[in-house]
Amino acid sequence: MLKDGCAREAVERYGDVLYRVCLLMLRNTADAEDAVQETFIKYVTKSPDFADREHEKAWIIKVAANKCHDMLRYRTRHFTESEELLDGYAVSKEDSGILDALMELPEKYRLVLVLFYIEEYKVNEISEIVGIGTSAVKMRLSRGRKLLEDKYRKEYM
């Protein structure tokens, strides 16, 4: 596993995943950068020993998800400016629409959908990362998917 003096390697390996998760969760690039940075700093300074690479990746995503959760909680009391997140990416209108719809879902659905559909985690792995039961993950996936479809069809198609 990556350890000692591994900041560059870690950011290269997991940077995109974390940034994707954090950006979709927080809908703000500056906050996403903060969350990713906090996660990597925690990783290089006090991460536990990992059994394998998947364990390591899951740990990093879990830390990042918790950071996002904390920041979202802070936001409920403090206004944060929204921005056009996908500016600068070569995103088709269709792709942009589905991401916009995804980002408008409640946090709890957003996270499991991102982990399931984009990061391709299995239900039991998401259960581990998010810290809820598998039945709750399934429920969120099912409801989240339904909400996403409704929103996407209604507003972005």
Binding site: G15, R20, Q37, I41, L86, D95, S96
Partner: peptide, 30 residues
């Protein structure tokens, strides 16, 4: 729908300048 989400999500990458900032700060923290 599933593929659409995956394809759209995969487009998001961390900007290179952001990566460098984070690496620098992590190395400093280390």
């Amino acid at each position: 729908m599933d593929k659409k989400i995956k394809n759209a999500g995969d487009i998001i990458k961390m900007p290179e300048d952001m990566k460098e900032r984070i690496i620098k700060n992590c190395e400093s923290a280390e």
